[in-house]
Design a protein around this nucleic acid. Structure first.
Lengths: 117, 117
DNA sequence: CAGTTCCATTCACATTTGTCAATTGATACG
DNA sequence: CGTATCAATTGACAAATGTGAATGGAACTG
């Protein structure tokens, strides 16, 4: 990809100084980085992050009908946000009759938390 | 906003059961949620997350010329990613002669890490 | 000075995202 | 049955995002 831009570190500056010490190859292998990025991306919206915050603090299953009025967006928009969180594995949901109950799956958040520490 | 969709929890199901226990209002105030989401969003790309990983592991300042060859994207694309990380406050940079050196500003990551725990 | 090198920025474009109105599907009630 | 309610989905659209080629700007070299 763009082989004319070799940009291989020269280890020598124009004035003879090394540009920096060489760097090890990222030891977060690519698949792990992609999982972490997917989780972070799902948290990368104020509404979704607040949703997760509410669900975590509640420590139980919360009905969607409780979540919708907390935010200034339409029901369908909130449903999309919840779907993104589900797709990222951060939350799960259950239906009971008319209602849908959401709760946090702590494992995904812990994985990101572990990477951050 | 869309006042016909009142969706206020009825606390009563059609069969007389409450839909769920009421939920406290998100106590991550909006501004904090937006800061956290901004940081998470900046980490929500595999290249940027790996960049942060490399910079953190190196525990020093790393020249851009070392970073570019680690990824399969053009130099300008990587520069864009670094700018996003800078804008989110996750990394800072310094110029020395021709080179630019990047390093992690740990405070922002710690703030997200604290929220996650 | 002219030429190089590193990095950032601009321009362009296809893809993704956030949003809402409207609809659908499922379930409950009467 | 018909109607009402909750939540998910569809369709549409503007805005943001990820990408690369090309350019610009700064600093060094000769």
């Amino acid at each position: 990809m763009s082989p004319e831009l070799t940009l291989t570190p020269k280890q020598k500056s124009p004035n003879g100084q090394p540009c920096c010490e060489p760097v090890v190859y990222p030891d977060v292998e690519r698949a792990h980085a992609e999982r972490m990025a997917k989780i972070a991306k799902a948290l990368g919206d104020p509404i979704r992050l607040t949703l997760v915050d509410v669900l975590r603090k509640h420590a139980g299953k919360v009905c969607v009908c409780e979540l919708v009025p907390l935010f200034d967006v339409s029901q369908s928009t909130l449903s999309h946000h919840l779907k993104k969180l589900r797709d990222a594995g951060i939350v799960d949901s259950e239906r009971q009759g008319l209602w849908a109950y959401y709760y946090v799956n702590p494992e995904e958040l812990e994985e990101l938390s572990a990477w951050l520490s």
